[in-house]
Design a protein around this nucleic acid. Sequence first.
DNA 1: TGATTTGGGAGAGCACTGCTCTCGAAACAG
DNA 2: CTGTTTCGAGAGCAGTGCTCTCCCAAATCA
Lengths: 232, 232
Amino acid sequence: METPVTQSVRARARAEMTSQIKQKAREHLAQDGPDLSLRAVARDLGLVSSAVYRYFASRDELLTALIVDAYNSLGAAAEQAEAEVPRKDVHGRWLALGRGIRAWARGAPHEYALIYGSPVPGYAAPRDTVEPANRPVVLMLAIVSDGLGRGELALPTGERVARSVRADLEGIAAGLGYPDLPVPVLARVMTAWAQLFGAISFELFGRLQNGVFDYDAWFDYQLRAMATHMGL
Amino acid sequence: METPVTQSVRARARAEMTSQIKQKAREHLAQDGPDLSLRAVARDLGLVSSAVYRYFASRDELLTALIVDAYNSLGAAAEQAEAEVPRKDVHGRWLALGRGIRAWARGAPHEYALIYGSPVPGYAAPRDTVEPANRPVVLMLAIVSDGLGRGELALPTGERVARSVRADLEGIAAGLGYPDLPVPVLARVMTAWAQLFGAISFELFGRLQNGVFDYDAWFDYQLRAMATHMGL
DNA sequence: TGATTTGGGAGAGCACTGCTCTCGAAACAG
DNA sequence: CTGTTTCGAGAGCAGTGCTCTCCCAAATCA
């Protein structure tokens, strides 16, 4: 019942090399922008370009790996930030979640651009990415769900939601493990999710330059505004 | 006092060629994604690659020209859509504006990605782009300003805006020609602007695939939600 | 142990890219 | 008609993604 050590040596070397390539690629991405050069990565690792193809079948596959990693990294950061707030403080949990996501994005803007910027040409999101990509949304649903259970969520009233939208939202919520959330709440959460993404993108992509200077405060304002919108 | 016809011939030919290059570039962008190949554009025009450099100093400069055009195209589409609604119907004007922007984006997704996706590596927004880029925001301010004047805008109450945010927002509004709008209104308009952008980006970049199917209805819901948020 | 399969790096090479340079011809100006 | 400007052609450079062959060392099997 021993682990196959011999194979493990090779496997470990391979895993090591793979993560080294990804790491160098991330550095190049941060340094030289999104036009990632496989050859440059190989050079920095003392490799010849063709050697990299033993680990990634193409440049796109490398990028896909980086995208998957970025989704997971963002998801972990979001979950950790949110977890540090007492469960009963649903408003604080939302703020922490938003701030955590923004902090991660500011710390790794190129990886943020990778997953939330314009999609890469040849790239079609593989199955690996959809689950980690949903982690922040799942967190949002968990927060409003808790708020609802604790009676700390103001249910939206007078909400008119088209039937098709209702169906779509119910499908999404069911797929993410929250089949019982009221549709108006879902609608507002998804609206806030788009707002959050838009706010961060505006900041990181420089769309507010020479207009907003105190980005921290502006982002916080928006977080609170959407909290109110969601009834938190 | 005649126009210099002789020079005009050359100038016209040059303008013609310039716009042909841009047009073909747009087609390639739509066909083959954002990795625009100058040589391919030249080939399609029966030119050798170096000839293109008589018109654009670099690939980046061509892209910049396309970006400026895209901003203006979007601005014009937004203004036209908004103009078709009676002035007194401020709610309808907001809906028309949002739908117009989305329609333009869906009709030219690659140009939308060019201006609202991740920024191009070497590219720093030149002065030419900031004015056309602001046109949609100016429209939004015009709508809420009209709504305020006509008493059709519900002023937000209980809004707490940090001092630095207040200053930033006032600066933005003043720079866009609406120095007298109340800060809470401004804050909500800018929040809605980010939401609008986020909603369109999610749709176009496929971030809601297998979740939302009736994109029209979902977008309309969000537009109405943000209208309420702005007091329209 | 010895033979053999396998993994992975090196190197050459192909087609492509952005960009620069020189050259020549046409269009313009005086 | 002469000189100048404009602009396309072509060659060439350095870089790219990717493929192929070669080859060696390490792991596997007999």
